[in-house]
Design a protein around this nucleic acid. Structure first.
Length: 478
RNA sequence: UCCUGAGUAGCUCAGCCGGUUAGAGCAUCUGACUGUUAAUCAGAGGGUCGCUGGUUCGAGCCCAGCCUCAGGAGCCA
């Protein structure tokens, strides 16, 4: 059996005269002799030239867009313009036919909306090929970064019993019969008879379990699927998404911010050096797309310039209180251009405010810290002022919140007091509180939405286009 | 969930004030051409106008309800 060479390797080769075998999917077949073939190893196609005068007519007819073919031939310098090398085909074998009458992907521009409805085939387009190679590179860089720093990768449970984290609506997990569940004497569904002997849900965060592990390994991270049953219909929310959650003992909020910033710069830097061609294509795609927008709505920087800017510049760090001052004194606020005007300290920031800070005022990623306790979660460490907590959110242009994190409240009395105030049942989270009873220490962590990172890095604008098979309200096809 | 907009050929879209046989480009098919770059040229086929009901002599177009999608908001990562 002849060994297959990946197209990326062939395109980089100068071994003219040697024989190679490539296998891939036909992108176009031009002029009855030029096959543009792609195997996913690179965004670039290789051109295989068929001698149509000496090739069976019935074989030529089967070389159609989308067909899987194997080509064996001689690697030669290309006679035509547009590519350096090509393959002079000696033999072409159709591995899998593709009926052009019914194959949805045509050699033309398709709308992202159409491709979303054909998510099973969209990997075969340039755009989605590039997006998912970048996604892979980012995921790999995440593990490489933490591994180099000595973090332990924890797999926290996907099915959880706690319904107490307050991170959003949860999906129920049950084996009970939906139409006729067993009931107790009070007429309520009797979860004692369920698979786990209690009500369970899909996880909304691995943080609480992550904290337990950090109290032994020092530094850990999780990277896994997360589920939110919110009826969210936006370009930045999914019902099933992947989240990275580092948790570090002996880190205060500043250590936490430093880690998050270095981390983001590292993974983006990895893609800048390893996925150059994909980024160039995605950057070009973005330019084309923005041509339809009015001048003042277009990005100032190209995709690669934007990513280089992020890796080369410090993120802006401001407290919530300073941010409120900036917003309050902004022209937008004074001219009542905000839909929600900033009046008093304590209000939650709306998307328009975050966007103003990031895109108009600072024009770079911003880390907002020390939010009012009333708009943040129970586990965040209370500041000396008694009003604010050691929270930090990282906001980036075009996406908004990329990271949400905090220094955790390690003082048992303050934590339980806060839980009581917010109606979080302490008895259900006894195991979490045990970390505050047995060797508690200063610690911090954050959560980063992986798809939002992919969005930012690829310049795509809809989160459903950076995950293979998006799960959103009314959509679980594929 | 709320606001706004959209749904017409495989895809992208046009369709006038409600009027006779619903169009274009691309794709597909047939033929020609053969160093092309989303090849080109000629011809052909292709429609449940999102669904249901209503108004009307007559509805792709008007009205009501529903479904789906997109953008924005909320929830958040």
């Amino acid at each position: 059996m002849v060994k297959r060479t990946r197209i990326k390797e062939v395109l980089d080769s100068t071994a003219y005269g040697s024989e190679v075998t490539i296998k891939g999917w036909v992108r176009t077949f031009r002029n009855n002799q030029f096959i543009a073939l792609n195997d996913g190893s690179t965004i670039n196609n290789i051109q295989a030239v068929v001698d149509f005068n000496n090739t069976d007519e019935s074989l030529l007819k089967r070389i159609t867009t989308g067909a899987a073919v194997s080509v064996t031939g001689e690697l030669v310098e290309s006679l035509g313009k547009g590519q350096k090398v090509e393959i002079k085909a000696k033999s072409v074998e159709i591995l899998g036919d593709c009926d052009p009458e019914t194959y949805p992907i045509q050699p033309k521009k398709h709308s992202l909306e159409f491709l979303r409805e054909n998510a099973h085939l969209r990997f075969r387009t340039n755009t989605f090929g590039a997006v998912f190679r970048v996604r892979h590179a980012l995921a790999f860089a995440v593990h490489e970064f933490f591994n180099k720093k000595g973090f332990v990768y924890m797999h926290t449970p996907i099915i959880t019993a706690s319904d107490a984290e307050g991170a959003g609506e949860m999906f129920k997990v049950t084996t009970l019969e939906l139409g006729n569940p067993p009931r107790n004497e009070a007429g309520e569904i009797d979860f004692k008879q369920d698979f786990f002997g209690r009500a369970t849900n899909l996880t909304v965060s691995g943080q609480l379990e992550g904290e337990l592990a950090a109290m032994a390994f020092g530094e850990i991270y999780t990277f896994g699927p997360t589920f939110r049953a919110e009826n969210s219909n936006t370009t930045r929310h999914l019902a099933e998404f992947w989240m990275i959650e580092p948790e570090m003992a002996f880190y205060d909020l500043v250590d936490n911010m430093n880690l998050a910033e270095v981390f983001i710069k590292y993974v983006i830097g990895y893609v800048l050096t390893n996925n150059r061609e994909d980024l160039e294509f995605l950057g070009q795609r973005l330019v084309e797309e923005e041509k339809q927008k009015p001048q003042n709505e277009r990005s100032e920087l190209g995709l690669i310039e934007k990513l280089e800017f992020v890796t080369n510049n410090d993120f802006e760090r401001v407290t919530y209180t300073e941010a409120i001052d900036i917003l309050k004194n902004s022209k937008q606020n004074k001219n009542k251009k905000f839909q929600y005007l900033i009046e008093d300290w304590g209000a939650d920031l709306q998307s328009e405010h975050e966007r103003y800070l990031v895109e108009k005022h600072f024009k770079k990623p911003v880390i907002l810290t020390d939010y009012p306790k009333d708009i943040k979660s129970f586990y965040m460490r209370l500041n000396e002022d008694g009003k604010t907590v050691r929270a930090m959110d990282i906001l980036v242009p075009g996406i908004g919140e990329l990271v949400g994190g905090s220094q955790r409240e390690e003082r048992l009395d303050k934590l339980t007091k806060r839980m009581d105030e917010m109606g979080i049942p302490t008895e259900e989270l006894w195991w979490y509180l045990d970390t505050r009873r047995f060797g508690a220490c200063e610690h911090s962590g954050f959560g980063l939405g992986f798809e939002r990172l992919v969005l930012f890095t690829t310049g795509m604008t809809n989160i459903r286009d950076v995950i293979a098979f998006p799960r959103t309200p009314k959509n679980a096809e594929f």
